[in-house]
């Protein structure tokens, strides 16, 4: 079980880093949703089903939708910044 949870945490970290790196905001939002989904599964294994439900429905579901609506109203791609 501990292996599985470690795997979930690793996926979370990778997804979070990816969300920060992606230039396409839509991809970043999907990565954020992945973080929430993994968190929700971890909460379930930590015997907090209440929090897991809230995280799954709000974090992975509604927040993503709200982000997408917001992107729909603004721009989808980050402007290329200069890197040093």
């Amino acid at each position: 079980m501990i292996v599985f949870q470690t795997f979930l945490v690793l996926v979370m970290i990778v997804a979070a880093l990816a969300a920060a790196r992606f230039g396409d905001l839509l991809d970043a939002v999907i990565a954020c949703a992945l973080v929430s989904l993994m968190a929700s599964i971890i909460f379930y294994f930590l015997q907090a089903p209440d929090v897991a439900m809230a995280e799954a429905s709000i974090g992975a579901g509604l927040t993503t939708a709200i982000f997408i609506f917001a992107i729909n109203r603004s721009i989808r791609y980050e402007e290329n910044e200069k890197t040093d």
Partner: peptide, 17 residues
Amino acid sequence: TPGGGFQGGAVVASGFL
């Protein structure tokens, strides 16, 4: 059972979504 007002409300709202 696990869950409650917040979770139920969020599920209802996802239906409207």
